[in-house]
Design a protein around this nucleic acid. Structure first.
Length: 125
DNA sequence: CGCGTGACTCAGG
DNA sequence: TCCTGAGCCACGC
């Protein structure tokens, strides 16, 4: 991970890492990424970071969409077409207006909860 | 340190 | 459903 600038906030580092960890064929929302990075209201920050870091960090930027489940770029823009194309290429269904079914394609980050006596399966005890 | 600018989000109307 | 306003966050000046 090559930093664009010498200083990058902890939030930015986390956001970039999270975006890179979204698997092919899945999408996440700006707000979701922000929350996972520790700022439940930092969605705008995520958008800003994407806009400024995509070129230098080779991010799977196409996998980040808005909370309405749509591509955030206006329909006629080159960005919209590119994002849609990239998503279709990885088998994410995108309607003409840029809508994606979050219930189907949303990335659910798997968190490894610390094991306690209660939730430890018998075979691991 | 304040201000303006975004690939944002939510609640109202 | 489609606007608006307000709130929110990062960052460059």
């Amino acid at each position: 991970l090559q930093p664009l600038k010498i200083e990058m906030s902890a939030f930015t580092v986390k956001v970039l890492k999270l975006i890179k960890s979204i698997p092919r064929g899945k999408v996440a929302t700006y707000g979701q990424i922000a929350a996972l990075a520790g700022k439940p209201h930092g969605a705008r920050g995520v958008g800003w970071i994407l806009n400024s870091c995509t070129k230098s960090h080779r991010l799977p930027w196409q996998r980040v969409i808005n909370s309405k489940g749509k591509i955030s770029f206006p329909r006629r823009t080159e960005e919209f077409r590119e994002q849609k194309k990239l998503l279709l290429k990885e088998k994410v269904k995108v309607s003409d207006d840029g809508s994606i079914t979050l219930a189907v394609y949303r990335w659910r980050k798997t968190v490894r909860k610390p094991r306690t006596a209660k939730n430890t399966p018998q075979m691991f005890r």
